[in-house]
Write a protein that binds this DNA or RNA. Sequence first.
DNA 1: AAGTGGTCTAGACCACTAT
DNA 2: TAGTGGTCTAGACCACTTG
Lengths: 248, 248
Amino acid sequence: MSGIVKTGPLPRYYQLKELLREKVRSGEWMPGTAIPSERELCEQYGISRMTARQSITELVREGLLYREQGRGTFVAQPRIAQQLLRLTGFSEDMQARHQRPGAKVLTAEMWSVDPRTADRLNVKPSHPVFRVRRLRLADAQPLALETAVVSFAGCERLLDEDLAHSSLYQLLETKYKLPLLAAEQEVEAGLTQEDEAELLGLGPGDPVLRTRRVTYSERGRPVEYATAVYRGDKYTFYTRIVRDGVAL
Amino acid sequence: MSGIVKTGPLPRYYQLKELLREKVRSGEWMPGTAIPSERELCEQYGISRMTARQSITELVREGLLYREQGRGTFVAQPRIAQQLLRLTGFSEDMQARHQRPGAKVLTAEMWSVDPRTADRLNVKPSHPVFRVRRLRLADAQPLALETAVVSFAGCERLLDEDLAHSSLYQLLETKYKLPLLAAEQEVEAGLTQEDEAELLGLGPGDPVLRTRRVTYSERGRPVEYATAVYRGDKYTFYTRIVRDGVAL
DNA sequence: AAGTGGTCTAGACCACTAT
DNA sequence: TAGTGGTCTAGACCACTTG
């Protein structure tokens, strides 16, 4: 009946949230239609209104629903709704594009950080950090040349990881308990340099996309600074922007 | 004493939120330091804990604070905290870079929408929409070539606007009451086409950044589809990504 | 053991929308 | 007038962190 377990391991607001998400995902509730009112949900699932509100509030923040005062809560249009905001590394990015990610490790070492990178990672210059340069493959074809510099206590353990077959982001999040919560990224247009062209299978003067990214973990602490050069003919950078301070 | 008005026009959670924000902004609370506990704030300001929590929760979402279970709530590092997420058009973008925005209107017309654009704007093909092509200037120098297609009931009124000196986004938000809440953007590297090169002051084969953007208003309704070509040598695209589903 | 944030309750009054 | 979301209360128990 209710589907909301009284004393399960998962919080009730979370259970209701996933239940509502499924109603939308499955198409049972179509875009533009009103969902049950907060008071109806309370009664249906035997929870208090504040709890139901928390579920709805989080789904509104994700863009799946929207509220109108005095009218009700509605399912948002799918284009904006179902493309959720994610923080992805190369591997997850490729999987989302239905391409098989791969990597060829060019170098992996402990490195005395240069001043520019030190500033971005908030560490002292010459501090030892982990650095890996990889040729990134999509369906076994070269797509990007990526340099990642990672800084945290114990980062030298990354030297023992198999970064040809593992996602760096997944390693950091699971094995090293460093949740990656936010990132700032810059994207520029450019042309190939000689060494890059050869590795990427491009000619001189071919267009490329250059990216720089600082990735942050908890407490706003920078963990990774990554630069990459993408083949301009095979890569499009996607982003979703949500306005800050949008009322719930 | 409290500073939280009992029956003012502004909600109490909002008053507390701005009060906390000011403590951080002014430097009274430095990054990394703990703010008073939720129960302390309740007592200090004479409000309930759920109300204090709402203030804090919103500031955590903005990246100004972070919580640690069992320890407390802390001020985040400024780099990530004070760079708030904004949805900007060209004019706001240039102002943020301390450059003077400008525009030369090439064409402004009602246009029978093509199938590709119709799909993005969620309107029927051949539907009449407003289209403006502008050469965008930064400090009076050509920076980008932008085509914006805008669709809403009454969009033909845009024909009478002075788009050489007005921000399209500001017009839409203020005069037309269309809050711009979210956008999806694609960025690619490319080379100039002949007609573009001349307008942008570039030679053939120079690198450019091509962007496509759909901007959404309330209810997830698409309002604008804009494509632009930026000079590769003068423009860097910035974005901040915040992970979806981050626990509050 | 004491203090913190995380979750939750069972109400309440308000502003707003629709009929 | 009835129903909706927006705000708010005064508690409660839990998991977690720190002494």
